[in-house]
């Protein structure tokens, strides 16, 4: 076998693969590096928006506005080790604490659900919930992130119970999502557990 043959059959494919890999990995790395900060600030903004939403404050459209309101009205309460325990949210003009918001996690059908849950100062009435992160089935359990589902929590007391999607919901009842009873139940449990926590904080 000639030397050229060996090169063509053995070395060239490996070399070619190597070069292609390097080229494409560098391209993706460049794009990733360029958008890394945007992704990170998206995530930070998202968590601030969730806290405002859970406290019942209308979330402004622009990121700057959100940062401003957050800076003025939200106070992070840390435990001894410096971890954030919960958030105190002040009223619009007064310095009084109007709401507290807890960020909590719990198992969903497929993975962890992270939610921000807000209460009034009594720690009993829910001022709002926002799903920060979830991996439920898109279009089914994933609908826990939809507005109609989240909005129905406002003003209700724990312990919550579930009814069907198009059934009339009573004072402390939540409409479950059809076809996603497990995800709905997961949220119910997360909120009920957070309520116990909130009452502990108030005390």
């Amino acid at each position: 076998m000639s030397k050229e043959g060996t090169f063509k059959r053995r070395i060239f494919p490996v070399l070619f693969m190597l070069i292609v890999t390097l080229v494409f990995i560098s391209i993706t790395t460049i794009i990733y590096t360029l958008s890394k900060d945007t992704i990170a600030s998206n995530e930070a903004l998202r968590s601030r928006e969730s806290i405002l939403y859970a406290a019942g404050i209308p979330v402004p459209g622009s990121g700057q506005e959100t940062d401003r309101i957050y800076g003025e009205r939200v106070e992070e309460v840390t435990d001894d080790k410096g971890n954030i325990q919960y958030y105190r949210v002040k009223g619009e003009n007064s310095g009084d604490v109007k709401n507290i918001v807890i960020i909590t996690r719990g198992p969903g059908l497929w993975g962890e659900i992270t939610a921000a849950i807000g209460y009034d100062v009594s720690g009993k009435t829910i001022s709002g919930i926002e799903i920060i992160d979830q991996n439920e089935t898109p279009g089914l359990g994933g609908r826990i992130g939809e507005n109609w589902f989240k909005e129905q929590f406002r003003g209700k007391h724990s312990p919550l119970s579930l009814v069907g999607e198009q059934a009339a919901a009573g004072p402390n009842e939540i409409q479950a999502i059809t076809g996603a009873s497990y995800s709905s139940k997961a949220i119910q449990e997360i909120v009920n557990r957070a309520s116990t926590e909130a009452q502990g904080i108030i005390k």
Binding site: M17, V20, T21, F24, I25, I27, T28, I31, Y32, S35, T38, I39, N42, E43, R46, D133, N135, P138, G142, G145
Partner: peptide, 26 residues
Amino acid sequence: LIIASYVIIVDIVLRAYLPDVSRQLG
């Protein structure tokens, strides 16, 4: 490899500019 690289680009762009959709598509 080529296909995977382009898909990574799509993923990064979605995460940076359409975070809500990206979260839903998982």
